[in-house]
Every structure is written in structure tokens, then in C-alpha cells.
């Protein structure tokens, strides 16, 4: 080793010494001075997880509510809002759980809160009950007619548009505007209670549309086709969408 250094010119030795000193300093600092929690990823990860887990919760969860409240959950259980968590409307309530007497959760009473879900919007899945707030009893608070814990129309809907507003709207502008829904669909009474499980019918025969649209039909001013040759193996609505203007 000594020989090697002797062979090197003095400036090279100087450089090597500088680098060695630097390396030793870095090594000592890293190895002995820096505390482990600054350089051990595993430790840091554990403490980060702990901090994340210890964060305060704001929403207590529906199961907390039923510990004290039994009337509302009982009503809610069988209604349309049965899957709706209490805090979806009443807001974050962990503070109320911690301190039930002093902190009260909110209780939205205005029309615009219900509108978040029930205002008509064509992007919403069809069948979801929607209204136009400007037309549907304007200015009247929703809760004066509907109990939010068991929302039901005060009277059975006269037409289907309570839930099928999108179709209703499209149809109103189409040639079929004057044909009521029940001409083509038979809706079992149960559909109003269990809309997803009991589903209304659709015309299952070509002849149904043929009553007006067949060449042989006595109807005047209606576009007609020769039912015998036109798209024979399909039911009409498999190609034509009867609710829009002119169909597609």
C-alpha cells in the first residue's frame, strides 16, 4: 500500500486523501449520526400508516346512528330510501356521536337538497325518480308532501313520468306524443313498489305496430311499410326507438 502511494505523484495522493476523507465523513454521518427513523424506510412506513390510521373520522357510519335512534331507521327500513345512509342527508355526524347533546347534525329542509338526486337530468339512469323543480309544486318544500324517511308520492303517480321523465320528454316531442304509455306497455301494479324486480311489458308482436304502420292499415297520414317484407325477423322496437322524433 505504501509503495503504491509512493509511486503516485503527490497531487494524486492529495486528491485521493480528499476523497477518502469525504467518504469517511459521509459514512460516519450516515451510519452513526443520523437516527434510524430518518433512514429506515420500513420504520417510516409503519409510522406513516399509523398516522394515517389515527386520522379523525367525520362520518360516523349508519351503524352508529341506529344505536340511539330507532324510530327513523325503522321507518326507513322498508321504504325507497332503505339503502340511503343517514349521513347522506344529515351530513357528517361523528361529532354528534361524540357529544350527542351539544352537537346536532344538519337536516336539509330546502328543495335544492333533494334536487341533488331528484332533479331531472337525462344522464341519470332511466327509471330513477326525477322531477323538474320548476314545474313540480314550485317553492313548496319537498318534505311537506314526502316523508324523507319513507318517500312515497302522496298519490299514486298518474303517469309514468314520475320516474321515466327522460322518456316522457322525448316522447312529448315525437309523433307518438299523444299515445299514452299504457297503450304499448302493461305495467303491473307491483312495478310501482318494486320497480326493478317487476318490469312492465313491451310489445312482443310485429302486428302490434302494424296496426298503424302496415301498408294494409286503414290509418291515414302514418308512414307505412310492407310488414311482410320489411325486417321480418325483428320486432319493430329492436330497430326503431319509438320514443324519439321519427325514431332512429
Amino acid at each position: 500500500m505504501k509503495d503504491f502511494f509512493k509511486k503516485l505523484p503527490e497531487q494524486a495522493v492529495r486528491v485521493v486523501v480528499v476523497f477518502l476523507v469525504l467518504a469517511v465523513v459521509v459514512f460516519v454521518i450516515r451510519q452513526f449520526i443520523i437516527p434510524p427513523e430518518m433512514k429506515e424506510p420500513a420504520l417510516q412506513r409503519a409510522s406513516s400508516e399509523e398516522r394515517e390510521a389515527a386520522k379523525e373520522i367525520h362520518y360516523a357510519g349508519a351503524q352508529s346512528c341506529v344505536q340511539c335512534h330507532d324510530k327513523e331507521p325503522e321507518i326507513k327500513k322498508s321504504g325507497y330510501h332503505r339503502d340511503l345512509a343517514c349521513e347522506s342527508c344529515h351530513g357528517a355526524a361523528q361529532k354528534h356521536v361524540d357529544n350527542p347533546t351539544d352537537v346536532k347534525p344538519t337536516s336539509p329542509k330546502k328543495r335544492d337538497y333533494c334536487a341533488y338526486c331528484h332533479k331531472y337530468n337525462f344522464s341519470r339512469p332511466t327509471g330513477f325518480p326525477q322531477i323538474n323543480p320548476d314545474m313540480h309544486n314550485p317553492r313548496k318544500p319537498c318534505i311537506s308532501c314526502h316523508n324523507p324517511h319513507n318517500p312515497k308520492p302522496p298519490t299514486t303517480p298518474r303517469s309514468c313520468n314520475a320516474c321515466h321523465a327522460q322518456i316522457e320528454r322525448a316522447k312529448a316531442a315525437s309523433y307518438h306524443a299523444l299515445i299514452t304509455c299504457t297503450v304499448c306497455h302493461t305495467a303491473p301494479e307491483k312495478h310501482k313498489i318494486s320497480p326493478r324486480t317487476v318490469i312492465p311489458t313491451k310489445p312482443d308482436k310485429r302486428e302490434f305496430c302494424g296496426k298503424c304502420h302496415d301498408k294494409a292499415s286503414p290509418r291515414k297520414g302514418v308512414p307505412t311499410v310492407d310488414m311482410a317484407t320489411h325486417g321480418e325477423k325483428y320486432v319493430c322496437w329492436q330497430c326503431h326507438y319509438p320514443h324519439t322524433l321519427g325514431g332512429i
Binding site: 505523484p9 503527490e10 497531487q11 492529495r14 486528491v15 480528499v18
Partner: peptide, 8 residues
């Protein structure tokens, strides 16, 4: 200092 006190 920059020359690391080299003299050769």
C-alpha cells in the same frame, strides 16, 4: 487551497 497545496 484549490490546488490542494500541491507544489510539484
Amino acid at each position: 487551497i484549490l490546488s490542494l497545496f500541491s507544489t510539484d
